[in-house]
Design a protein around this nucleic acid. Structure first.
Lengths: 341, 341
DNA sequence: CTGAAAGCGCTTACAG
DNA sequence: CTGAAAGCGCTTACAG
């Protein structure tokens, strides 16, 4: 039903291989033949059958992303499209297809994906410190790149946000302004239990900041909802009446905290300073606009895809490990403590 | 390098076809043979080669989504992951792969996708009233489902939000509360120019509401940024000092409007009532929480995928056209006009 | 219930 | 610069 390579070859009076050469831009064919064939290809509306190409060549020209979205204990919100679109854009530019797996996989299914020639390589998201997927892919010698990283990253490629230092920077900013009693609103307890990288590293950053600046450790784990942020912030203020600032790890939690502060009849930044860390694009919606350290999912996704595709193309490519730069953006949600207290 | 069907067949001492039957759960094979083969499959770690299956059977068992994200005139924000995850989840459940195209395609590329056997069907997003993709797919007899719809939808399947009636309902709610001078903050001018469904239908709803309730038409087109929403709302209040309420079509614009109102030292809902329409999940971040009509991208995506897969599986399936239900959720951002004026 | 043959539409590896 | 052969790993359509 569709036009095939052979159809074109017959019409052109050449062999299939010659048409193949013309279509794929291979060397070893005269310019005149190529042009003649290509115009015929155009005329006949020939499109190579991807599956057949893949089967014959043993490559899929496709990368996969595993972004487990339906794991309620791990992530309830904050699914960021920006990572997906960053990867998709980069894949398209490199002429790779992009297959998305959003379910929670088990080892069997992941193995199946690798063995079934669905993709040449895979990008992992929601990486935990000791992620079983990493071991599985390693054993299968299946190329992959992590967005995030685990405990032992030797020989692995990743792109990650530097949660640890971002948290420290947020604290430094507040300490500079004279704050000493700072509430830390971090990721859900479930994330810590599952050893998800962001939770572990954010907490490490918190501990370092406490040590370095000799602060009282005030830490609350919030689920990623406005309600939970509201509840935890309210608790924090009750249990530590001298708190003057918050460092918050998620946009919905930040909104809950803001809401809580305003419900108490207090103001930002006059009464409380607030700094967000690792906020995505949707944090634009937050009022008042927060001083925050953002991450840019599209850029992270793009780099991850680039590294993966490079690995696939270039056999001698070495592992790349990238911690993206971050810096705090100032928008007026923090104030010098002397102004208000 | 990988274990193949033939490898299993040899070990089992049967034909390839018999293994195929066992693996695919086909009829016409004795239970004992099947079990023997399946345990061998397990032992040998055999995984069928998807590409080969596809080539031989002429099906890809894969659906595609075209969600053009990089078209700056059409959409600058509001890329919703929820649609993607809804489709992805449904696809996975039906054992379909899910390939994502996020670039802007032209006719040539879309044709290529259909002809190249990358997917069995496609879901379109960002549908305009007169979308060239629809014509192209129709001609190719390539199965597709729209999220959104165009002018003439005869014989086509779609899942869409009822923008028109949602806007009317938002107006009705405000009129019920006594508001007569209502500002409409709608999608960017570019959307109107491109005939994007949401822009066209939202405007139709606005016009109907104006007619039905005999209101003064006050309409501003805002780009999908907080800044633009701020600017348009400020303008609206200046040019129509008697405005008491806003109907807003996008979350970032709503945030801009809220910001503008608060900057003027006015309050919601005491001084201004605000209603959002077609807000996605991320509107959780908006403070104060808005009375709004939401759409649920995951459900919409899920239904679209279900319809498409049904079309692929069931040749006699008829086109399905679904307008999702909507209702306004009350959260305190509107008030009776007599209270304040 | 089982199998041998042909073929899906390409590419690889080789020969000329 | 060009081509004939074999094969990628399955399934379809048929025969028994």
């Amino acid at each position: 039903m569709s036009v095939t390579l052979d159809d074109v070859a017959k019409r052109a009076g050449v062999s299939a291989k010659t048409v193949s050469r013309a279509v794929n831009g291979e060397k070893g064919i005269s310019e005149t033949t190529r042009e003649r064939i290509l115009s015929l290809v155009d005329e006949m509306n020939y499109v190579p059958h991807t599956q057949a190409q893949n089967l014959a060549s043993g490559k899929t020209h496709s990368i996969a992303l595993h972004y487990p979205l339906f794991s309620p204990t791990l992530i309830s919100e904050g699914l960021e499209m920006s990572f997906v679109s960053g990867i998709g854009g980069e894949a398209a530019q490199a002429n790779y297809y992009f297959t998305l797996f959003t379910g929670e996989l088990d080892q069997r299914e992941l193995t199946r994906i690798c063995r079934a020639s669905i993709a040449d390589g895979i990008i992992l998201m929601q990486v935990s410190m000791d992620d079983w997927r990493v071991e599985t892919l390693r054993k299968l010698h299946f190329p992959f790149v992590m967005i995030g990283r685990c405990q032992d990253n030797q020989g692995l490629s990743f792109v990650d946000f530097d949660f640890e230092n971002a948290v420290i920077d947020a604290y430094a900013h507040l300490v500079d302004l004279g704050h000493r009693e700072i509430g830390f609103l971090t990721y859900p307890p479930a994330w810590q239990q599952e050893s998800l990288g962001p939770a572990i590293r954010a907490y490490l950053g918190f501990q370092q900041a406490i040590d370095r600046f000799r602060l009282k450790p005030i830490c609350y784990e919030a689920n990623l909802t406005v309600e939970s942020g509201y509840a935890r912030a309210t608790e924090a203020v009750k249990e530590h009446p001298d708190i003057t600032a918050f460092v918050v790890m998620h946009n919905t939690v930040a909104v809950g905290a803001i809401n809580a502060i305003q419900s108490l009849g207090r103001r930002i930044p006059d009464d409380y300073s607030v700094v967000g860390v690792a906020l995505g694009k949707e944090s634009d919606l937050i009022l008042p606009p927060l001083n925050a350290i953002h991450w840019y999912g599209d850029q992270i996704g793009q780099r991850a895809a680039k590294i993966l595709i490079n690995t696939l193309t270039n056999k001698t490519a070495k592992p790349e490990q990238i911690l993206v730069h971050h810096k705090i953006e100032i928008r007026g949600s923090t104030a010098r403590i002397s102004q208000s207290h």
